[in-house]
């Protein structure tokens, strides 16, 4: 069997409903919108953790900003009866991700941990995935960015710096998951609940974001997901996101 055949077969397997039950981990997140104050600490933390470039004012205006997580702002009602709502929006790591089948080079696929993987080295920059993503979670590198000295010293060595022409998006801080799994393997155990915290979860001052293994019924995410306030964004599209939002009442 050639490699591309085996990739196709693997891919088909991962796209069957309920595939994640067969695997050890199924990483997911719960975001409590009642707690979110829109402070954007998660955005800043993500920027620092994942070597996101700063595109500048002009780049931002032309819609070329690179954000793995952003805070969406909604105004409810008219002044003075007005309410402000925030929704942190990041890659939902959908179980039926619309971005995956459209990639011509398998640069994005689902892996055994329920993560939507982006492989920078495979990506040829067709941007189909971004066009199909209903959450607008993907960013394209229109340029190769450089960091002036001494700012290059702050780059995270565990995350690569992406080149011009590749798509990128939230990885659920794969470097931290990998690190936790490495430690767990040394001690011959599973990754404990709360052991992995992506940068956004770690930095959230109100702990609105919770990360964990959805396959483990005792994990904080699984318990919070039972909350009647829980919903998935654009559920009607049947993407089955890994992120559960708890409604802001």
């Amino acid at each position: 069997m050639s490699d591309s055949d085996s990739i196709k077969e693997k891919w088909k397997k991962y796209r069957n409903p309920g595939y994640q039950d067969k695997f050890d981990y199924s990483w997911g997140m719960v975001i409590d919108l009642d707690r979110c104050t829109g402070c954007e600490a998660c955005v800043t933390a993500c920027q620092a953790e994942n070597n996101l470039p700063i595109v500048g004012e002009e780049g931002f205006r032309s819609g070329r900003e690179i954000k793995w997580i952003r805070i969406e702002r909604y105004w409810d009602g008219e002044y003075p009866d007005i309410k402000l709502r925030f929704i942190p929006m990041l890659c939902q790591h959908c179980d039926n991700a619309p971005c995956e089948p459209v990639c011509p080079v398998y640069a994005t696929y689902h892996n055994q941990d329920g993560l939507n993987v982006q492989v920078y080295n495979r990506c040829i920059g067709t941007r189909s995935c971004a066009a199909y993503c209903p959450y607008d979670a993907r960013s394209f590198n229109w340029f190769s960015f450089t960091w002036d000295k001494p700012l290059d010293e702050q780059l995270n060595p565990d995350v690569t710096v992406r080149e011009k022409g590749v798509m990128e998006k939230c990885t659920f801080c794969i470097q931290r998951i990998r690190q936790a799994k490495d430690t767990a393997k040394d001690q011959n155990r599973r990754v404990r609940d709360g052991e992995v915290q992506p940068a956004c979860v770690q930095s959230c001052p109100t702990q609105a974001l919770v990360f964990g293994d959805r396959n483990d019924p005792d994990s904080a995410v699984s318990k919070l997901a039972q909350n009647p306030r829980g919903y998935q964004v654009l559920k009607e599209l049947n993407t089955n996101p890994s992120i559960i939002y708890l409604k802001n009442l």
């Binding site: 696929y109 892996n111 055994q112 993560l115 993987v117 492989v119 920078y120 080295n121 495979r122 565990d158 995350v159 690569t160 990885t171 794969i174 470097q175 990998r178």
Partner: peptide
């Protein structure tokens, strides 16, 4: 053989 085992 998973990409994210080695690629970061």
């Amino acid at each position: 053989r998973d990409c994210w085992t080695c690629h970061k």
